[in-house]
Amino acid sequence: MSNLKKVLWATAILGLVICGVVAYQIYSAIFNPNTAFGNEEAYVFIPSDANFDEVKSLLEPLVKNLGSFEAVAQRKGYISNIKAGKYAITRGMNNNDIINSLRSANIPVKVSFNNQETVEDLAGRIAQQLEADSLALVQVFKDTAFLAENGFDNDNMITPYLPNTYEFFWNTDAREFRDRMFKEYHRFWNGNRKKKAQELGLTLTEVSSLAAIVQKETVKMDERPRVAGVYINRLKKGMLLQADPTVIHAIKKETGNFDTIIKRVLYRDLEMDSPYNTYKYSGVPPGPITMPDISSLDAVLNAEKHSYFYFVADVSNFGYHKFAGSLQQHNRNKVQYVEWLNQQKIRR
């Protein structure tokens, strides 16, 4: 009987040891640190519709023991509940922490774009920052039914995209991006701004088209209200806008090459038959020649009140312009600029 007791005790002790080992292994798999990078934080971008094998492939360089991660992922039900997005893994995290992060801590990303001239350029810029690909973005940007429903067309389809920095989840799709931009556009056009546009006798789209010209004419934000004032004065007097950037846009549009760099508009260019040629057609062009940023839009809405009708680049203060109220004074100012162009051998 004593031998049987010994066997039972030995078996019990062995069972406890085995249970202890198993418990320790489970505890270690769940709670021991399992990161393999030296930085404080690493990021994982999980695509939409990714399967667990793809997730493992993304994590392989970041974890010490992929097997233990998979075991915990299975136990916690993560394998069948993968979510797309950008996720952070902090150095020293254990498998439990990693999976909790991948489950519920989708991190917003900052998405920025500047003054793109076409929706294709915008799509390329956004596709570098979000999961949405450029082809899908272009397709929703050009959706004729959507444009018509919202009062836009092929000429002014870039109007609702206001250059700025926005927060999105990385896995935002093309349609979600477009719809968010339209919301931002309508948020920008509050009652006060709409009232100012009405007082100027301009539609919201015309404000954007005029602001795009201002954007192209000067990089100096403090000068934009003055430049805008020149164009407002011309519109009120029934003069042609005669804005060189619109002619450059007409050339690009006709050739289909928006990468063309034109530093000097020639007299022959002014004869181009295009609704964007403001030397030939009166009023505001049918759409923006670029995406104006908020400073240019507000420059038009708060245009400086003055008596100037002309301006030309100031070669003694680069970036700024010389303004004139008469054509005679403008022509005198222009002589200096033309001489400078010739000295620099800028022919085109």
Rank of each mutant, 00 (worst) to 15 (best):
T144L: 11
T144Q: 15
L147F: 07
E149N: 09
N150W: 03
N150K: 12
G151S: 06
F152L: 15
D153Y: 07
N156H: 06
M157W: 11
I158D: 08
P160G: 10
L162E: 08
L162Q: 12
T165S: 12
E167V: 03
F168R: 11
W170A: 10
N171Y: 10
N171T: 07
D173M: 02
F177T: 07
F177L: 09
R178E: 08
F182C: 05
K183D: 14
Y185N: 03
Y185P: 04
H186F: 15
F188I: 04
A197K: 08
A197N: 12
Q198E: 15
E199L: 07
E199H: 00
E199P: 00
E199I: 01
E199Y: 06
L200V: 01
L202P: 06
T203A: 08
T203I: 05
L204W: 07
E206S: 04
S209N: 12
A211I: 03
A212R: 03
V214Q: 11
Q215G: 05
Q215H: 11
K216Q: 09
K216R: 13
V219A: 13
K220N: 10
K220G: 00
M221K: 10
D222M: 05
D222E: 14
E223L: 02
E223R: 12
E223Y: 06
R224N: 03
P225I: 00
R226K: 15
V227W: 09
A228Q: 06
A228G: 09
A228V: 00
G229S: 06
G229W: 04
I232P: 10
N233G: 05
N233R: 14
L235V: 01
L235S: 04
L235Y: 11
K237F: 00
K237L: 01
K237H: 05
G238E: 07
G238K: 07
L240I: 02
L241V: 01
L241T: 03
A243R: 05
P245M: 04
T246R: 11
V247W: 11
V247T: 10
H249S: 06
A250H: 11
